[in-house]
Write a protein that binds this DNA or RNA. Structure first.
Lengths: 215, 215
DNA sequence: TAGATTGTTAATCGATTAACAATC
DNA sequence: TAGATTGTTAATCGATTAACAATC
């Protein structure tokens, strides 16, 4: 069974929407409902579910409570997820502050920076920011597996190599450098500059043609 | 000619890499070089280029200077791109500060918030933050076409509808709400929570199986 | 010239959708 | 029961790659 990133991103959306429906008092949800919300076909919703052995009732759809629970388990939300943020400049600090209390099942244990003194003023949380030299011992002592990196373009590759060497198995990369997946580490790239350029393109050429695909 | 978001994101990466190669003194670049950097086939690089009529030399690859220029034109970097940031909480302010001076061809003209007084302390730039009530006149007076939204989940849909009504044609959405493309407005979603959940999934299940696809 | 690389076509691969039997 | 929705298979669609003639 091969699962793509797109599939997991959809599961996350199914969960978000189902949680919202629950708050609206829904007890069951149909594949058609979720399909409409995501702008995809109901076949895909059912196919996604069947890959994870999420089953429904032939006429009653999927039970909201059960669906949320199963999706949470798949997405690892049933356990506490400890992460660290490496690079606490503007973007890193924003994430640090956004997650200053555990939220959405995500706990930020620490931030790291080459110059903690310089970024401390951006830190509005109680989460400590340590010097990057403490990265290795912290990761090993606290058994950290996931890191979010927001360092400068220049240091992105070196920092990533170190993180992998120290045992990090998953990285969310906010630097402008495209990092490729590594045998021991799953990496996902969020390139804000490219996303903005993408908008520029489609706004400019919207008149003459197309428009396709969202993310 | 149908161009997908993925294609444009690749063009943006081609440009980043080529700029780096130029700084290293490269004068020409081969499709194989770019393919390696992105982890794709050289056929795809050449196909992407041919869709935009970017041509090379049968033995000399692509001229670096010319390639950068053409990619910049396609990505709209030849003109000044004015954007606004709607919602200046932690993420919005981080972007505001990150782009406090025009950078990468992106100029942030203003921020907007329901409560400018509350977020002013986060604003480290000279970019003004206005009350959200001034959104319509500002967009129209300044002919703004692109907005980055970082508002709360609750207001995301309403804010988006207003932006489209005021004439915004492209939105980069950092809220957790999945916004669907609109006939008059291209929308790209960056869902940080989903991205983190995606990492969780692949780290957990890395042992048992797969690992596939990056973004 | 021989060798290398482009530009493009055909083949492959994977993701999505349509369709429908099963069944609640 | 009749009607509606799931679960799954086959069909379709689109994106990527392989292959190779053209040619610098």
């Amino acid at each position: 069974m091969k699962i793509s990133k797109d599939t997991i991103l959809r599961l996350s959306q199914y969960k978000n929407i189902t949680v919202k429906l629950k708050s609206l008092g829904f007890v069951k949800v149909f594949s058609d409902n979720l399909a409409d919300a995501l702008g995809i076909s109901s076949s895909l919703v059912r196919k996604d579910f069947s890959m994870f052995e999420i089953t429904g009732n032939k006429r009653g759809g999927y039970a909201v409570d059960e669906l949320i629970e199963k999706l949470n388990t798949i997405l690892g939300k049933d356990k506490v997820q400890n992460v660290i943020i490496v690079g606490c400049g503007r973007i890193g600090s924003a994430l640090l502050n956004y997650y200053r209390y555990p939220k959405d099942g995500i706990t930020v244990k620490a931030g790291f920076d080459i110059s903690p003194a310089d970024v401390t003023s951006l830190n509005d949380s109680n989460i400590p920011i340590y010097d990057i030299s403490e990265l290795e011992s912290f990761i090993k002592d606290n058994n950290i597996k996931i890191a979010i990196i927001c360092v400068s373009e220049n240091s992105a590759t070196a920092v990533t190599e170190n993180l992998i060497r120290y045992g990090i198995e998953g990285i969310l990369n906010f630097t402008p450098v495209l990092l490729k997946n590594h045998a021991d580490c799953f990496i996902s790239n969020v390139n804000i500059k490219s996303e903005i350029e993408n908008i520029f393109y489609f706004v400019h050429f919207a008149n003459q043609e197309n428009i396709e695909k969202q993310s």
